[in-house]
Every structure is written in structure tokens, then in C-alpha cells.
């Protein structure tokens, strides 16, 4: 999306995650894992904000988000 990478951080929306495992499998840096069939960030430091997880998440449950749109 529009904003630059610096102020973007990886965010997950657990209630929409259906545990399909696509993001975990295709994250190039093994940042993610499934816990009780839900997405979990296991190593945020390794995240390079490539956005492949958001690109292939069928449920909009993981994304690079800014902090300004916290409210919705």
C-alpha cells in the first residue's frame, strides 16, 4: 500500500485467521508460525516487510499496517 516501509509494522487479525498456513510457508524469513490453528508472529525482528504474507493471505488476517489506523 501507499505508506513507506519505515512506519509499517506487521499486524495480525487473529479472529479472521483460518489457520491455512500459507503465510507461514511462504514467509522468506520464518517470522511466522501457527499456534492452535491461528497465526502467530514468532520473530518480528526477522521481518523484512516484504508483504508476501499479506499478498497471499486469503482472509486479510495479516498485513503491514501503520499505527495511525489503530481505531478500526
Amino acid at each position: 500500500m501507499g505508506n513507506q516501509k519505515e512506519n509499517l509494522t506487521l499486524k495480525i487479525k487473529k479472529d479472521w485467521c483460518k489457520g491455512c498456513g500459507i503465510c507461514v510457508a511462504f514467509c522468506p524469513k520464518q517470522v511466522l508460525d501457527l499456534k492452535d490453528d491461528k497465526i502467530e508472529i514468532v520473530d518480528i525482528e526477522k521481518c523484512i516487510k516484504c508483504g508476501l504474507c499479506e499478498l497471499r493471505c486469503p482472509d486479510f488476517a495479516i498485513f503491514l499496517g501503520g499505527n495511525e489506523d489503530e481505531e478500526k
Partner: peptide
């Protein structure tokens, strides 16, 4: 909160959608 794409282009109150876990349609 949800992604900006969802906020701008989706009826977020209707999500999550009905497709099965791992169905490719959400990606498309």
C-alpha cells in the same frame, strides 16, 4: 483494526468471508 486495503475497499462488517481455510479465492 484491519489493513488499509480492507478499510478502503471492503465492507469489513461482512468479513470474515465464507470461503474455506486455504481457499484461493480470498487471494484472487
Amino acid at each position: 483494526m484491519s489493513s488499509q486495503l480492507v478499510q478502503q475497499y471492503y465492507r469489513a462488517d461482512k468479513l470474515p468471508h465464507i470461503w474455506c481455510p486455504g481457499c484461493g479465492h480470498g487471494i484472487l
